[in-house]
Design a protein around this nucleic acid. Structure first.
Length: 282
DNA sequence: TACTTCGCGCGAGACAGACA
DNA sequence: TGTCTGTCTCGCGCGAAGTA
């Protein structure tokens, strides 16, 4: 299987085809694929989901994927590598690479928010316009537009809901989940009395209420979300363990270590060491 | 059906000490 | 210096049962 690589940190490719433009290839960069027009399906790591005009897909490094085009399809493909993510100063999101990797388990369009869909369509339209009408500073302009797409993608990924959240879940439970995800770095804000006070639910009823709507207890949900972020930070950052301890609001390293080991069966440093060994041997 | 009460078990926090 | 392990205490969350 061939391995694609990039010549620049960011590349924009416009393609119109009725055949598969990218089949069964692997690569070490991120790709946004916006479907300008057309329909078909997209298979990522064995999951096949239909696409249509307006779909905004994210393919993460080392995903195996293929497009199955049904009607003539226009693709706008934006590629950027890890170096690009690390170099750019994201004001409020210092773990954006983690968020993008976080979407590797998600198939289909990554933009769920209706307003963000409009925003993405507008930005993609501007990029297409810049490609068509080459002008002074277009590269800089496109880079800013791509950064905007990255931020929009990150915030939609950050708001992915639990897989088994009930269809009828009311606005309150969605608000609670959003609140948890927004305050995941402040454990004090995630205590039951605080959440209950904010959302007008009885302290002892919260866990029942949450489990009824989401199929898992609130502490399990918080622990899993926290654990996933720690995993990504261990995988994709050079942060020291005690920096993560501070970031995630643990009392000390031992506490985070116990938390991590209880769920993953190994200490944080062992986990990072195992990951590094895999990278070296790859 | 929506919410409350209550008792128990678990996990968070604090600390000491070991190890590389 | 950075990380890991063990122990102890206490508060909190969970789930069962009860109530309106």
């Amino acid at each position: 299987m061939r391995k694609e690589s990039m010549h620049h940190q960011v590349e924009i490719i416009y393609s119109q085809t009725d055949q598969c433009p990218m089949t069964d290839s692997s690569f070490n960069f991120f790709q946004f694929v916006h479907i300008v027009s057309g329909s078909g399906s997209h298979e990522v790591n064995g999951n096949r989901i239909t696409y249509q005009a307006g779909s905004f897909l994210l393919i993460t490094p080392n995903d195996y994927h293929a497009f199955y085009v049904e009607t003539l399809t226009e693709f706008l493909i934006i590629r950027f590598n890890k170096g690009y993510i690390k170099e750019y100063q994201w004001k409020s999101i210092d773990h954006i690479e983690c968020l993008l990797h976080n979407a590797s388990h998600v198939s289909g369009c990554i933009i769920e928010n209706a307003n963000d869909k409009l925003l993405v369509n507008s930005i993609v339209g501007s990029i297409l316009h810049n490609i068509k009408y080459n002008d002074l500073y277009n590269n800089d302009l496109n880079q800013h537009l791509i950064n905007a797409l990255i931020v929009i993608a990150a915030r939609n990924i950050a708001k992915f809901k639990p897989a088994n959240i009930k269809e009828h879940a009311n606005k309150k439970i969605v608000d609670i989940i959003n609140y948890i995800q927004s305050n995941i770095y402040s454990p004090g804000q995630l205590k039951a009395p605080v959440i209950c006070g904010k959302f007008g639910v009885s302290t002892n009823y919260l866990s029942v209420y949450f489990k009824e709507a989401c199929g898992e207890t609130i502490t399990h949900f918080i622990a899993n979300y926290r654990l996933r972020l720690i995993e990504y930070r261990l995988n994709f950052s050079d942060c020291r363990i005690n920096e993560l301890v501070e970031e995630f609001g643990f009392a000390d390293e031992s506490h985070m270590n116990k938390f991590f080991k209880r769920h993953k069966g190994m200490s944080t440093s062992t986990y990072r060491g195992a990951k590094d060994a895999l990278v070296i041997s790859a």
